[in-house]
Structure formats: C-alpha cells, structure tokens
Computed example of a mutant assay.
Amino acid sequence: MDVAKFQSLISRITEEVSGSPLNGSLESHLNAEHGPGSYLYEEIFEACKTGVRDGWLCNREADGIRFGRVLKATDATHGFSVDVVDMDNVAGPHHVHPNGEIDLIMPLSNGATFDTRPAGWCVYEPGSAHRPTVASGRALVLYLLPQGAIQFTPASH
C-alpha cells in the first residue's frame, strides 16, 4: 500500500458518495453497505494502519494528536480531501464543516469511540461543528471533506 494505491481505494467510496447530500440517510447507507466487517471497511482500515506504520499517514503531531492530509480535494477523489488522524483519549480542536464531513471510525482499542460513536461511518451535515473526541481508547479516523473545506474556531469553543 502506498499513497497512489490509497487514492485508488478511497476513490471507490468518494465516487459512490459524490453528489449525495451529507445527512443521516447517507450515514445509514454507508454503515449498511460499508460498515465494520464489510470488505471495503476492512480494506480501508488495513490501508490506514499500513500508512501509519510506514509513515505516510498521520506524519505530523500536535497536542497529542497524530494527523495529516494525505490527499487534496481533486477530480481523482471526486472533490473530497482525505485526512487521517490517530487519537488516543483526546479531544481535537473545535471546527466547522462548511460543506459537511464524512468520517470513518476505526477503533484500535476495543470499545474506543469517536464523538461517542463506535466503529463505522459518521456523517456531519454542512454547517455542523464539533470538537472531535476519541474516548475509551485509541482510534484512527478518516475524514472526507468536500472541497477540503474546514474552518477552525477560536479555542474558547
């Protein structure tokens, strides 16, 4: 696995969701079709673990969070950027998703959650905001951001 193969793998999901409204219906679809135990979920999870191990994913660190934007929003990813974070019982910086956000939660510790959610897909609608939090252990989280749009907010949130 390398960045080019990872892009090809991720483009399978970005092609499928391209043009879909980012909402609860999309979240339900992704969990039903590509949830934990499915071929695509497990393939992406293994690719992310390999990328972290080999140093091309999560190759930066700040405030106890390893992170990195592995793919910019391009035609190859159907207009989605791809970031992966490695978090262990920590809350990240508060931010807004101008165009929404699609997250793939991949617990590395048994029972680890992301924003109180277990393994699987989580979809945030356009204009939503949160302070991404991993609790009860360590998890990798893959973020798909339409047009790469994210707005970090002041620390007071």
Rank of each mutant, 00 (worst) to 15 (best):
G127Y: 00
G35F: 03
F114K: 05
A155L: 15
L145P: 09
A149M: 14
A4Q: 07
I44T: 13
L40Q: 13
D88A: 11
H95F: 02
A119V: 02
F6S: 06
E101W: 02
H157I: 13
M106Y: 00
S11D: 04
S11F: 02
T50L: 11
L144D: 10
E61G: 00
V141Y: 09
V90K: 07
A139R: 06
G127H: 10
V96A: 07
G51V: 11
T14L: 04
S20E: 12
I102D: 01
A119E: 00
K49R: 14
P126V: 04
T14F: 00
E101V: 04
F114R: 02
P126W: 07
D83E: 05
G68A: 02
V85Q: 06
S109E: 04
N89Q: 01
M106W: 03
V82W: 05
L22E: 04
N23F: 01
V52P: 12
F6T: 03
H34S: 15
Y124T: 06
W56L: 08
N23G: 07
V82L: 07
M87L: 08
S136W: 10
A155R: 11
A135M: 14
H97Q: 03
V90A: 01
S28N: 13
V90L: 00
L40K: 08
A149S: 14
K49E: 10
L57V: 08
V3L: 07
A149Q: 14
R69K: 02
L40E: 11
H130E: 11
G37P: 04
E61Q: 00
T113Y: 01
S18F: 09
V96F: 09
N110M: 15
A112M: 02
